[in-house]
Nucleic acid binder design. Structure first.
Lengths: 212, 212
DNA sequence: CGGTCGTTTGACTGGTATCAAGACGAGTGG
DNA sequence: CCACTCGTCTTGATACCAGTCAAACGACCG
């Protein structure tokens, strides 16, 4: 993979690309490796080129609060660079991952004034606000039950692909609570699991009313 | 106030300014008026020129979750414009307010490719991510007690300026809970209120340990 | 057929909101 | 100078949601 193949950089000229190449390193992480920890100062701009990275915060009781999963190609944690603050969350590889680390201090101002770059950055920041505001909505506004019901309506496939323990993890609840909610919805005849263990929605209207 | 006096626009040329002027209206709101509601589609880019605007979400039980207060000059709700989604929260005037509403659809692409504008937008979006990630930290990671202790350490003046009911409102808790926490901290001799009703911190170290 | 992993169920706990009542305190009118 | 009143603060009792702990249950795999 060459720099110019990365959409973010595709409109840079040769000198720009060479300059960035000089201050960048490509790192490989294996699943479970940490890209950065919450609270660390950022030295590099991180560009996810391959693999999946999850972002989470750790609460006072040591529990992970799952926020988002990033897939290529994404800027990760750029806010911390721009605002010169510590990373607000921890980023961990969930698969084998390739990340381009760009020495942020040595990134020339030209980089940001390039209209294509700044457009990409605006896009990336907007995406992040969307991620955070969804997260806030799901975690602070909705009850756990409403959150699960929303997941059922919007991503019922996930119940075929993942174990309940994993679904509990990404929805920031526990397997027990998830199980109780699903049991309740089955009793109400809003959903059922067919013989293939697929989740079938029986009463979409009633479900939808539960989170709106 | 002229457009060119607004930092966001200060580097635009005369034609640009005139173009924006044509598609903008200045609106005045009085305290309690709503600038936009959560869930509405955005038609205008909102620039707060004067006054204070608070941003909040409403939870399933009808309670307001206070997120932030904006002071001039701020872009408000621009994410919704950029991403063409509904406003993720409600914006309400808390004082008399002046807002410039710019017809977003008619804003020419040039506007965004102007390096100074895009830089301002990047700044504004970064600020918003910071606001949201602080909000998440305070509301989801910290306990109510830790959150109040943090407020005491970082903004003890607020206890002289505002009534406890108001402090409870902006910290998304109840007056009762706030009172219980303050009583506890007084009993522990971590804080006291002197004869002038000012909050005095007696044991900063112990307090700091409570939210870190 | 036993073991392991995942799910379900029940009992309990903790943290914070809610509801209700009482105490306080500053300003007001007699 | 007193006592009334209104708004605010405090305190107690209770409720609720979701997490925790523990145990039983079930399903699949070797």
């Amino acid at each position: 993979m060459y720099l110019k193949d990365i959409a973010l950089f595709s409109n840079l000229n040769k000198e720009n690309l060479e300059a960035i190449d000089k201050i960048s390193t490509l790192v490989e992480l294996k699943s479970g490796d940490i890209l950065f920890y919450e609270g660390e100062m950022p030295y590099f701009l991180h560009v996810l080129l391959n693999g999946v990275v999850k972002l989470y915060k750790t609460d006072s009781k040591g529990r992970q609060k799952y926020i988002h999963q990033f897939t290529p190609i994404s800027l990760i944690g750029e806010l911390a660079n721009f605002e010169n603050v510590t990373f607000p969350a921890t980023a961990e590889a969930v698969t084998k991952v390739e990340v381009l680390k760009i020495d942020y201090k040595r990134l020339h101002v030209d980089f940001f004034t390039n209209p294509n770059i700044s457009f990409s950055i605006i896009k990336s920041l907007s995406q992040k606000i969307k991620i955070l505001s969804n997260f806030i909505h799901q975690e602070m506004i909705l009850s756990t039950e409403a959150k699960i019901v929303k997941l059922i309506i919007e991503h019922s496939e996930i119940f075929e692909k993942l174990k309940n323990t994993d679904i509990a993890a990404i929805t920031n609840t526990t397997p027990e609570t998830l199980s109780r909610i699903l049991t309740k919805l089955k009793k109400l005849n809003y959903i059922k699991f067919n013989d293939k263990h697929e989740l079938e929605i029986l009463d979409k209207d009633s479900l939808t009313k539960m989170f709106t």
